[in-house]
Design a protein around this nucleic acid. Structure first.
Lengths: 143, 143
DNA sequence: GATTTTAATTTGTATATACAAATATAATTT
DNA sequence: AAATTATATTTGTATATACAAATTAAAATC
């Protein structure tokens, strides 16, 4: 396959950031297949297990995803009986079910496997540096 | 809003690369609104204008998108009468229409505006460095 | 205490993207 | 030349995500 640096738009941040995200998404999806979840659902579930009763707003801020997206992700976890919602007034609390909690060790394993997979390709040093660089830059977005 | 670095997963390359891509996607979409195209469609159209008759396979490699995705993007540009396809055997050639070609200066303007928008937020130095870093890392993906 | 404003969440809808399968053609082998 | 294999493209289908609007409740103001 063509390298990214051979592309016309290899100096365009739109193109490169999206292409990178897609490539990483693929590897992550592979790692998360063992628990039959997409990476987004997996990370969301781990947050919910880590803080039972957490509210969609907090999840949205944590994951930098829109509230409506969080609702949709939760709906799917609910369908799979991994979480439940309780509604109190305008607030919603999300809790892991026993089935969800049981999954925790396997979720952690997915994270570990994912790390092994991508660092085998990208290198531990380089990918750690990239993450730091991305984080530093992304912090500049205020809204 | 919470900073990316305050998130639980700020050291996870899956999370950070996707979050960055989404943030940049937003800014890009804004810039491309003037021509009523999504950034993907805009960059695709520019490639087609630049190399009339280019085939889906080449576009796929250039943009690091799946062939089926290219088909879908082309379909939309076709609907808008910005490109046409000719079919020769198993190959397809994609050409800009006059209407498509006319758009070229405005497309370039979108690219320029996008650059101004994001570099105002991220800084020219830092974002250039990030792009180089991303490209270097992404080059390690062979498939 | 009634009214207005703000906030949290969900719903309706649209979109970009991918995977797997289908199609059709070209290239290779026998 | 026929049969097989490989290649380019499209189609069917699924999915994550977002935006805008709707809903509902809480908070603030009058």
């Amino acid at each position: 396959m063509k390298k990214l640096s051979d592309s016309h738009y290899c100096q365009c941040i739109y193109f490169t950031s999206n292409a990178l995200a897609r490539k990483i998404e693929r590897i992550a999806s592979q790692s998360w297949k063992k628990v039959n979840l997409s990476p987004s659902h997996g990370y969301l579930l781990m947050l919910i297990i880590n803080e039972p009763g957490i509210q969609p707003m907090a999840l949205s801020e944590e994951l930098h995803l829109e509230p409506s997206t969080i609702t949709r992700l939760i709906e799917k976890l609910e369908l799979k009986k991994l979480v439940v919602r309780t509604f109190e007034g305008k607030l919603t609390n999300v809790y892991p079910t026993p089935k969800g909690k049981e999954l925790n060790p396997r979720l952690k394993q997915c994270v570990a496997d994912f790390y092994e997979s991508y660092s085998a390709i990208l290198g531990k040093e380089d990918s750690a540096r990239l993450v730091r660089n991305i984080t530093k830059i992304a912090d500049k977005f205020v809204h």
